[in-house]
């Protein structure tokens, strides 16, 4: 994978809302052809990261550090103004089609305006053809074109959202909880669709989710976000089979197993301190069962253990 082209790179990236840090020291890259799952509970800062990557942070937000995006010539360039990249370099797949589509516009109207935006010279018949092709590429048919959002099933709506994200042929797909409104079968199909966009179309796919079990398995790499910082990043197989950060382990132990034996109690993950307070300590210094005095005194440095990066003073593998 590291030999693949980097499409998106964050370095020392952080976001303050009203001068309060809510995201700090984010270092993350997405390569062509891979799916990365960014796992974070509510309040972890994942929404702030999503908005920052789209250049749609609220007006009171300030960002620090670097964001680099793929260039047409194959290089990476730092971008301050992300506006022209939206829909073109970075395609966004929102959470719930019932709220993310405009209820008074048909699927065809939604597709047409995005196509027109990203190919200004095109004619309406050209775009109609492209719209039908886009629906086909996400496993739908042109029958859905005249439909309004309320007449789409959950799975169809979510695929329409993917088609819209693909209309500008972006290098990167950024998906926000793309399966939370779906049943297991539609979830599985949608994740397969996103995976195919990475494998076949060589896009970079970043899936942001609160649910480790729902999305991580479809990803090549997993990054765990807590308290506004990343705590563990690595290949999915390594992270899920042998988590090193206590939080990752707790998140996995929180998911009940399908078959016996079952634990009498499921683990409930420790809560991180808010990002603003973690510049001088580990976010879990007060809540982690493994914490020692050093955890409250020094923020943990990144270290490499068993093929992944982990930010913890007492990683599980080293205990």
């Amino acid at each position: 994978m590291p030999t693949e082209r980097v499409l998106l790179q964050a370095e020392g990236f952080g976001v303050d809302y009203d001068s309060t840090p809510i995201l700090a020291d984010i270092a993350l890259s997405v390569h062509a052809g891979e799916v990365v799952a960014l796992i974070g509970a509510s309040g972890s800062g994942k929404s702030a990261l999503l908005r920052a990557l789209l250049g749609l942070s609220p007006a009171t937000a300030q960002t620090r550090g670097l964001l680099r995006f793929a260039q047409a010539d194959g290089g990476l360039r730092e971008r301050r103004d992300i506006t022209p990249l939206r829909g073109a370099t970075i395609g966004f797949v929102p959470q719930d089609p019932q709220t993310a589509l405009s209820a008074h516009r048909t699927v065809a109207q939604h597709l047409d305006e995005v196509l027109a935006t990203h190919a200004p010279g095109s004619t309406r018949p050209m775009r109609a053809e492209q719209a039908a092709a886009l629906l086909t590429s996400v496993g739908l048919t042109g029958e859905l074109l005249p439909r309004y959002p309320h007449a789409l099933s959950g799975g169809q709506g979510q695929r329409v959202l993917v088609a819209l994200a693909l209309a500008g042929n972006p290098a990167i797909l950024l998906a926000d909880e793309p399966t939370s409104a779906l049943d297991p079968r539609a979830t599985h199909e949608l994740l397969a669709l996103l995976q195919a966009q990475a494998r076949v179309q060589r896009r970079g796919v970043l899936i942001v989710s609160h649910d480790l079990s729902a999305t991580a398995h479809a990803a090549d790499r997993v990054a765990v976000l807590a308290g506004g910082r990343l705590v563990e990043i690595g290949a999915t197989a390594a992270v899920l089979s042998q988590p090193q950060h206590p939080l990752t382990a707790a998140l996995m132990a929180a998911c009940p197993p399908l078959t016996p034996p079952r634990p009498a109690r499921l683990a409930e993950a420790p809560r991180p301190a808010p990002c603003a307070r973690v510049a001088r300590a580990c976010a879990f210094a007060a809540t982690c069962g493994r914490a020692q005095s050093v955890c409250a005194e020094t923020p943990p440095a990144w270290r490499t253990i068993a093929g992944r990066e982990v930010a913890c003073h007492w990683p599980l593998g080293a205990a």
């Binding site: 994978m1 297991p184 994740l191 995976q195 991580a216 398995h217 290949a235």
Partner: peptide, 25 residues
């Protein structure tokens, strides 16, 4: 669950995301 029948249940079991194979593996 062990018998994976009827078909509706087997489809639900088959749809579990644990069955994905990431590229790295």
């Amino acid at each position: 669950y062990a018998s994976a029948t009827p078909p509706a249940l087997s489809r639900l079991l088959a749809a579990r995301t644990e069955r994905f194979v990431p590229l790295s593996a």
